[in-house]
Design a protein around this nucleic acid. Structure first.
Lengths: 200, 200
DNA sequence: CCTATCGTTAGGTCGAGCCTAATTTCAGGT
DNA sequence: ACCTGAAATTAGGCTCGACCTAACGATAGG
């Protein structure tokens, strides 16, 4: 039994609003675009936009949950016997080879929009904080499963270390590509750093 | 040569506004306090508040620059021959013994206000990001002084590692003290973690 | 004492976020 | 086919933070 008409219309409305918003953000920039404008162009009430996307930033970072869950998923789904750091390293290296957009291969428009908007930068930091917290939750749970007396501090420190490394490497890749360095060389550089620092 | 009357009045006005704001934040919470209310109680125009504190959050985190510069100062002023990690470790341990408020010994009112306000949490993350960037700038400069061909990536990773460890330890201390654990025990735990993880 | 500078003020605009009541649309039964 | 409850959507209004401008007042320096 597929979704009912109601649910399909909701998804369609949501996707339509997000698409219209993205288009306007590219045309005019994030700050210069108003919610009223998005609602008008999407032929929907202003309140409907707010219902689907409580904060204006959510219109830009739709699919945020995917990014937030990333590291926690990679680590919790890893094959037995490998460390969290190894799992993150392998997933990162695979993502690099696949030129996966969330690792820094996003369009210049996307990067520029964030660079131009303090609100988007703040939202990005919030997402990274949630990402780190989700990873920490996984590592703490693992640690306490192995030793019920573990207080989780070491696990939280490891989560912060891993999330920090990935964050810096993504920023490095974005920064250097924007600066004009050849993508191949940049990828090779961050690949080397990942191998060096994401040790077991 | 002391400051002129003009400058002294400015500082007095600024301090007065900040004091009034802090009082109101404690009484009513951050979100529930409006800028108009602060201006009224401080007997200044609304615009004057905005002039001194462009964002409402700045009224809460006055003295932000001090926190932002912390790690960079500690590292750049360290005695020759010690590593950045050692410098951070020693400064952190000294701060712990002194029960220095920025390390997590702030009042419960302060902590609660942040916990209750997404805007304050966002501002806090912004400050930590700036703190990390300032530290990274110092480490990158050192690395490139030693080797002009250094691309700074390892320095940035080290800055992220050090800033992350301190951030987690501060959060751990705050969280456990709020949860009711005896301060002595909590301090001893984070002290041990600092010695363990802030290695050379 | 004069005047240019700079802090302060009053008043207004804009847009995000939030709320409520009314209306439309769909789902599941009769 | 119809009815009813539930859920999505709408219209309209409200508050407040952020920003702007022109005028005002007090200080510093000649």
């Amino acid at each position: 039994m597929t979704q009912g008409l109601r649910e399909r219309k909701k998804q369609a409305t949501r996707a339509h609003i997000a698409a219209v918003a993205t288009q306007l953000f590219i045309e005019q920039g994030f700050e210069a675009t108003t919610i009223a404008q998005i609602a008008e162009r999407a032929e929907v009430a202003k309140m409907t936009v707010t219902n689907y996307f409580p904060l204006k930033e959510d219109l830009f970072f739709d699919r945020a949950p995917e990014i937030v869950a990333l590291l926690a998923e990679v680590v919790s789904r890893r094959t037995a016997g490998t460390t969290p750091a190894e799992a993150v390293r392998e997933a990162y290296l695979e993502g690099l080879d696949a030129r996966w957009p969330p690792l820094g291969f996003g369009s210049a428009d996307f990067v520029d929009a964030i660079a131009a908007s303090p609100a988007l930068q703040a939202r990005g930091r919030s997402m990274l904080a949630d990402q780190e917290a989700a990873l920490a939750a996984v590592l703490v749970a693992e640690a306490q499963e192995a030793d019920p007396d573990d207080d989780g501090l070491d696990a939280r420190l490891e989560a912060t270390r891993l999330a920090g490394i990935v964050r810096v490497l993504v920023a490095e890749l974005v920064g250097r590509v924007i600066a004009g360095e050849p993508e191949e060389a940049v990828v090779e550089r961050v690949r080397r750093a990942a191998r060096e620092h994401l040790g077991p």
